[in-house]
């Protein structure tokens, strides 16, 4: 074992980390393909296709004759078998063609293009704040497990985690907008301007997202941290007389951080659902209005495009977190 060429430094050394990066990225791509299939199948294959939807919509009286239906199907290319349609859809995606709305006929890129930026601003702000809050408070309360500070943080986290976003947002509006009158209850952004120009409208939406996501991520980081704190090597380090501060920074934090980040990725995937709700509550001009309308009117191409984009973001975050963990944990990094 000691003379394993993988472990000793030298010119002939392999790169287990590089290999892992490649393998995880390939896995991510495979998952993306699988997800695209799931999204396509889920939205397109269940009873009732786009032609039904359009005809019911246009001719409110009766829904069209079977001949009209067949004609429309042919026009929309729905008469070809689904694998062929799936490949066509994927081909379009690869060329940047997201398809066009069944309702308005506009291209999906058009529909969401201007609003995507607003959503990204909201999501980005929430994520940037979430990571330090979750990691910091999670580590802090995990280390002082059972003491008053931890009890307060864990108690609040347990409560906040349980709240659905629309309830948290409603309660926050009641407190900050209705009672205190400090912040706007709705977050209107005039077309053509950036929400960053009026940061006060971002406060409540971001707070709503954070309250829920931070709750669960703090708990996960804390659970992992308190596991490490109880580990034998921490106890032994103390028995060697290593100062407490050093025990925390050199023994607890490095071992808790990696897995904690992986857990955090799970929280961020919750953000996708949360952001739709929060945008609705605050009438924030992001993509969610279009998405919800598209779902209700069964505007398949729009939902497909948006769902796929969201899924890809989530998978990318997971893959990134996976790689970060591998980079941070020596045992994984060295392929041991």
């Amino acid at each position: 074992m000691p003379r394993d060429p993988l472990l000793t430094a030298g010119p002939g050394r392999h790169h287990p980390f590089l290999m892992l990066c490649i393998r995880r990225s390939l896995a991510g791509i495979a998952a993306t393909c699988a997800v695209s299939l799931l999204v396509f199948v889920g939205t397109d294959l269940l009873p009732g296709d786009a032609a039904d939807v359009i005809l019911t919509r246009s001719a409110s009286s009766g829904g069209g004759t079977p001949e009209q239906l067949a004609a429309l199907r042919a026009e929309l290319g729905l008469d070809v078998p689904w694998p062929q349609r799936y490949l066509g859809w994927i081909g379009g995606l690869l060329q940047g063609d997201l398809g066009s709305s069944l309702v308005s006929g506009r291209s999906v890129t058009d529909v969401i293009g201007s609003r995507l930026g607003n959503t990204l601003v909201l999501a980005g702000t929430a994520t940037v704040l979430l990571v330090p809050v979750a990691v910091g408070l999670g580590l802090w309360s995990g280390i002082r497990q059972g003491r008053p500070g931890d009890r307060v943080v864990s108690g609040v986290a347990v409560a906040a985690q349980a709240l659905p976003e629309f309830v948290a947002a409603t309660l926050l509006i009641a407190v900050f907008a209705l009672i205190a009158g400090l912040l706007p209850a709705v977050s209107l952004v005039p077309p053509g301007t950036s929400p960053l120009a009026r940061p006060e409208i971002l406060v409540l939406p971001v707070l709503s997202l954070l309250s829920v996501m931070a709750g669960q991520s703090i708990r996960m980081v804390r659970a992992r941290t308190s596991e490490v704190v109880r580990a034998d090597f921490v106890r032994v380090a103390r028995l060697h007389g290593i100062p407490e501060r050093r025990v925390v920074w050199r023994y607890v934090v490095p071992n808790a951080l990696g897995p904690a980040l992986q857990l955090l990725a799970g929280s961020i995937s919750w953000l996708v659902g949360g952001i739709v709700v929060v945008e609705q509550v605050f009438a924030y001009p992001g993509i969610s209005h279009e998405l919800v309308q598209a779902i209700i009117s069964r505007d398949v191409p729009v939902v497909q495009a948006l769902a796929f984009a969201m899924a890809v973001c989530t998978l990318a975050i997971y893959t990134l977190a996976d790689l970060l963990v591998v980079a941070l944990v020596p045992k994984l990094r060295t392929g041991g």
Binding site: A231, D232, F233, V236, G241, I242, R250, Y251
Partner: peptide, 24 residues
């Protein structure tokens, strides 16, 4: 006590796999 631990009296633990810091 911390001053004495590891300096005048030192401890050899039971299970070395668990007693070593995996990230050091």
């Amino acid at each position: 006590r911390r001053q004495h631990l590891g300096r005048i009296v030192a401890y050899v633990p039971q299970d070395p796999v668990l007693a070593l810091n995996p990230a050091m």
